[in-house]
Design a binder for these strands. Structure first.
Lengths: 132, 132
DNA sequence: TTTTACTTTAAAATCGTTCTAAACTACTTG
DNA sequence: CAAGTAGTTTAGAACGATTTTAAAGTAAAA
C-alpha cells in the first residue's frame, strides 16, 4: 500500500504537505524525532513547510495511529514511527531513546485495572546511565 | 528525622522557602502535583513564594532524590512524592495518574542493558481509558 | 564579625506549541 | 466539468510553562 492509500485509509486527505511528511516518516524504518527534527528533514529533502503545518500533521498522524508519541518528560514532544507495542531504554542525561521489542520483555503479574477502565497499552521504560 | 535534617542530609541549605515546601511535600503522603498545584498549596497555607523559587526548589529536590519527576508527555511537569520504585496507571484523556506499587508488577525477562550503560530504574506505565 | 557563597525575587526573556483568520486546495454534487 | 463546501495551509501573533537576569537578601564559613 502506498502512502496516498495509507493516508486515505486513515481518513486523512492526501495533501501535498502530508505526502511529503508521509514519504519521510512511513518508510518502515523505526525512529524517534521531534517536530524540529522533521522540519530539518523536510528542508534537506528540498521542500519547506510552515511549522504550524508540521505540528498539525504530527497531531493528525498520531491521532490516526500512523505514528506514536513517546511519554517523556523532556521539554519537546518526541514521536516514534514504531507503532507496535514496544518499550524503551532512556538515557536521562542525553534524552536518547532506544527501542526494546515487545518480546524482549515479559511481564508476569499485572495489577488489576481500576474499576470502569480498560487497559490501553503497557509501556516499560528502563532508565539507563553511562557507566563511569 | 525532621525536615531541616532531611534538607541538610540532601546537601541543601534549609532556607525558609525550602522548609515551607518540605513541610508540604515530605509528609509521607504520596501525591502527584505540578508547580502550580504546589503554589496553590503554599498560598493556602498562608505563605507565598515566587514561582521561580518554586521551580528552583522542585529541581533541587528532584536532583537530590527528595521527590521524583514523572515521565509524561503532558505540557506541565508532574512531580511525585513517592520516591520508591513504583509504576503508574495513566488515563491519557485526563492525565490522571494512579500509583502501582512495585510488588504489584512482576517483570520476568528484561532485555540486556546496552553496552557501557547501567540500569537506573524500571518504570511500567499502563495506559487506561474509561469504559463506555 | 566580616566575608563568601548561595538563595530569592519580580520581571523579562525564551521556547515549544497552538491559535487566528485569510488564502488555498481537495473533494462532492449537480 | 462547474460550482460549492468543507477541510487545509500559512505567517505571524499569542500562549503558557519554564528559565534567565541581576539586584537584594540570607546562611554558613572564616
Amino acid at each position: 500500500m502506498n502512502n496516498k492509500e495509507k493516508l486515505r485509509k486513515a481518513g486523512l486527505r492526501p495533501t501535498k504537505q502530508r505526502m511529503i511528511i508521509a514519504d519521510i516518516l512511513l518508510d518502515g524504518i523505526n525512529r524517534h524525532f521531534t517536530a524540529e527534527n522533521l522540519q530539518n528533514e523536510i528542508n534537506s529533502s528540498g521542500n519547506s513547510m510552515s511549522i504550524a503545518t508540521i505540528y498539525n500533521c504530527l497531531k493528525k498522524f498520531r491521532n490516526c495511529g500512523l505514528i506514536k508519541q513517546v511519554e517523556s518528560s523532556k521539554d519537546t514532544a518526541i514521536f516514534d514511527t514504531n507503532i507496535n507495542q514496544h518499550h524503551h531504554f532512556l538515557d536521562e542525561e542525553t534524552g536518547k531513546l532506544i527501542d526494546i521489542e515487545n518480546d524482549e520483555v515479559n511481564l508476569h503479574k499485572l495489577p488489576k485495572i481500576p474499576q470502569g477502565y480498560l487497559n490501553n497499552g503497557v509501556e516499560v521504560l528502563i532508565k539507563i546511565k553511562k557507566q563511569i
